[in-house]
Design a protein around this nucleic acid. Sequence first.
DNA 1: AATGAATGAGCCTTCATTCAT
DNA 2: GATGAATGAAGGCTCATTCAT
Lengths: 222, 222, 222, 222
Amino acid sequence: MEGKADVAGKVKDLNGKTRASLLHMAGEVFAEGGFHAATVRDICRRARVNAASINYHFGSKGELYAAVLEYSYAQTLPEFPGALKDRSGPPGERLSLFIRGFMQSVLDEGRPAWYGKLMAREMVEPTSALDRIVDKAIRPRHKFLRELVVELLGYRPADEELSRMAFSIIGQCLFYYHARQVIARLNPSVRYDTRGIGRAAAHIALFSLSALKAISRGKKGG
Amino acid sequence: MEGKADVAGKVKDLNGKTRASLLHMAGEVFAEGGFHAATVRDICRRARVNAASINYHFGSKGELYAAVLEYSYAQTLPEFPGALKDRSGPPGERLSLFIRGFMQSVLDEGRPAWYGKLMAREMVEPTSALDRIVDKAIRPRHKFLRELVVELLGYRPADEELSRMAFSIIGQCLFYYHARQVIARLNPSVRYDTRGIGRAAAHIALFSLSALKAISRGKKGG
Amino acid sequence: MEGKADVAGKVKDLNGKTRASLLHMAGEVFAEGGFHAATVRDICRRARVNAASINYHFGSKGELYAAVLEYSYAQTLPEFPGALKDRSGPPGERLSLFIRGFMQSVLDEGRPAWYGKLMAREMVEPTSALDRIVDKAIRPRHKFLRELVVELLGYRPADEELSRMAFSIIGQCLFYYHARQVIARLNPSVRYDTRGIGRAAAHIALFSLSALKAISRGKKGG
Amino acid sequence: MEGKADVAGKVKDLNGKTRASLLHMAGEVFAEGGFHAATVRDICRRARVNAASINYHFGSKGELYAAVLEYSYAQTLPEFPGALKDRSGPPGERLSLFIRGFMQSVLDEGRPAWYGKLMAREMVEPTSALDRIVDKAIRPRHKFLRELVVELLGYRPADEELSRMAFSIIGQCLFYYHARQVIARLNPSVRYDTRGIGRAAAHIALFSLSALKAISRGKKGG
DNA sequence: AATGAATGAGCCTTCATTCAT
DNA sequence: GATGAATGAAGGCTCATTCAT
């Protein structure tokens, strides 16, 4: 019985091995250098499968990329709103949590660390998948940030101004990812381990909350 | 001897329509799609010269890219510190001016508008030219921003914290360049003409100055 | 023994929806675009079976093709000489009937209409199956035509000349199949429905009978 | 002087060598197996040039094919109407000449023997170049044949019937090309050397002229 | 100083086939 | 009896570079 179950399990693993391996390796490679710089040969070599496997399992390089992104949503979306919908804490703390979580998803060098990186890459070097990424991953976060900003300001600014607030916050975060090579040269003391990410997130939270507070005060006072 | 070398240098730099034309077209093409997406054939076609010209004049695609960057420094560096070294105005105004100037150099769609774009691109998609770019173009601006921040805070924070202040400001600016496709989808009302750039720069200046003022007050008050 | 073999043969031929479905779909696909343009994946997809089925049931794409042809002979041969051996009618009418029948088998767009098309295709784009096709399908028709020509002429010309007479008749017929795309451009009024086929066949019959009659008269008169 | 001229000539030859060699080899290969069966690698190997040459000189396999066809028109068109416009001889003789010329251009195994074969192939296995082929090469010949038929009949039949007369003649000719493998099996005594072509052409001329004469007589007599 | 011609490496994809179950 | 998974060979094409003049 157990033996049979094992065999069945193995079968399923073995059958799905190529596809899964491909999916993960592709995620890594795409996250490293973007869609265009990645080559199917490299992905297949690293996954130790035949170069034609991508075509068999996904149809084309582009569809593999789409599959990687879909997989990425499936991994991150369920957790995202759950942790953040909670409106129990004070809004400042929730913003800090969001910033920290976002930076970790983008910067964490852990193993399957490409969930956030793909999104960040797609911003800078968009492919035909951008529309879907915006709808599935970016817009929800943007909306979330906007609502938080309204709470923090104590009033709702004009639509465009409100968006710009969110851009200011997210722009600070992404800079640590996009410009990491430059940062390493400008200030080598900046680290990207968990503690380093924490310190960067703390700074951005402080900077942004200070700005929002001051703007709110100025608006109300003025 | 020295004179001759100078002459030769000048000759090499200025003479030869082919070389100059190549340099400008390459700048445009590199700024449009980055180093990897650019093809020597496309550059040569647009410059109306033979496809072998790049290798003849510059040795390789990579060396052409380096030459484009060097040319860009030669054009922008002389003006940059001159306009900004001026300490006559109040620091807040000087920060606004810097932000506006920086965003214009990165976002302006005018014809020879690739000086800033190349720098912005290199941050995200670094090539072997990055070290030189950092030294010649980025570090000066970074230092300039740091000093401005010190002035605005009224005290000098720890080195790393000070750098992060500069990162927060520049990160907001670059977001409008790097994420322009995403911004266009999230909020189509955001424009990239001169007025639109001005409004974005104004927001970033307000956001940043508010943050610095509030932090300064908190520090002093705490 | 013999009975068993028969049963096995029957089983192999008739049983197994997969095998039969494959055979018919392959016939259609091969008739549409020829052997090389056909892909096993397409055939299997249309037959709604696994892509490996062809190799499982037939060994290879080439053997499938051979099987399709064999099946085609088995369908057409029994009827062919039966209907035409009948020497009751006048030879001119029998030629008209042959031409019409031949053109219908080649041109009719009805569903299982690939019996004649495969033969016509194989003439132009021969595969290794050609020898067998010639022996099983083409030579009998060629012989039939030759005998009819002898009857019509009233004498038996030299072997080569007799063959050429048959070639002249069959060449007119095949032109409507092979050059159908060109015909559509040269004279769009030419149709390929049943009536159109009938008119083409009538013309070919008239043209050929006129030729044979005139030649016969010339020969006898000279 | 002479030496210089020689050098210049050589230069031009050498420069154009790859392109010309490619053009001729491609013509041969395309004529042998058609557009799809031909591979750029094979063409380049036979022309002893690099596999990328086709792309450099012609852009793509398809454009190479188009260039081969254009070259073929340039070779055959000038001679075609010249020899046949001559209305001095009796129409029967002119038809014999046309048939013989057409068959030679299609069947001759001489060196650059693919001019007519490409046209014949395109009829059976059309590509996107068919429209151009029809306009440039086929329609002129079709018209020529129609006019000759009118002369031979002594009256002008209905448009469609007239076209069918031309089809009957040209169909007999093409059969010797398209079905040559089958002919070789049915009647190995049929040869494809100059004499053999002459005998085939003579038979087709006799067959067709006999038919036209008989039809004309029937029409007038009826 | 400059160029047209040619090249080799590498890209993504398609295909008939084989493997393991 | 049948199939999903996987493979190796080959296809057309693009690219930066080099050669010969």
